[in-house]
């Protein structure tokens, strides 16, 4: 296994983040740095990656694990190239979130929580994304796809397949 290390570019970003806090408070950088790490290392946080982040921030590995496991946006298992996060809370449910989930399950031939056999898509349901007025919707990387219909979902899946890029928040 190759040694885990941020690219020079990512390291620059991390250093800039750490400078936002008073001296000795570099642990404050943990959440943003975990996002950078997740984007750098294939969309998930392996124990090795978390240990690496701990070493950079000069904190104990457990301090990283407990945070990474608390927040929903950090994936502790590998995910498909494109993570489709469908909001299913109240207002989205009123406007067709259940139908959208069923449609995507059927189209991708997977259940919620699963990844397509080609490793392209992981389907996940999430709680309120603050897009209640534009329901139903899903998030893929940093992008919100709103007011979705079956046709729009088809077009989105098609586009993601063609682009063939890993979805990332940052």
């Amino acid at each position: 296994m190759s040694e885990i290390a941020f690219s020079a570019e990512a390291m620059e970003v991390v250093k800039k983040i750490i400078k936002r806090y008073p001296e000795g408070r570099q642990k404050s950088a943990l959440l943003p740095v975990l996002h950078v790490a997740q984007a750098e290392f294939d969309g998930w946080l392996s124990p090795e990656v978390m240990d690496y982040v701990a070493s950079i921030l000069e904190i104990k590995p457990i301090e990283v694990y407990e945070v990474a496991s608390f927040y929903t946006m950090y994936n502790l298992q590998p995910v498909g190239k494109c993570l489709l996060e469908v909001c299913q809370t109240g207002p989205c449910m009123l406007n067709g979130a259940d139908d959208l989930v069923a449609y995507l399950e059927n189209k991708l031939n997977i259940k919620v929580g699963e990844t397509t056999t080609d490793g392209m898509f992981t389907l996940k349901t999430v709680e309120c994304l603050g897009s209640c007025g534009t329901a139903p919707m899903l998030q893929c990387g940093a992008d919100y796809h709103e007011n979705l219909t079956n046709e729009k979902a088809d077009a989105l899946i098609e586009k993601l397949r063609t682009d063939n890029k890993r979805s990332r928040y940052c």
């Binding site: 936002r20 404050s28 959440l31 996002h35 945070v67 927040y71 929903t72 946006m73 309120c128 940052c170």
Partner: peptide, 10 residues
């Protein structure tokens, strides 16, 4: 002034 990003937690 800095912006801090969260990790997904109501």
């Amino acid at each position: 002034l800095y912006v801090q990003i969260g990790g997904g937690a109501y």
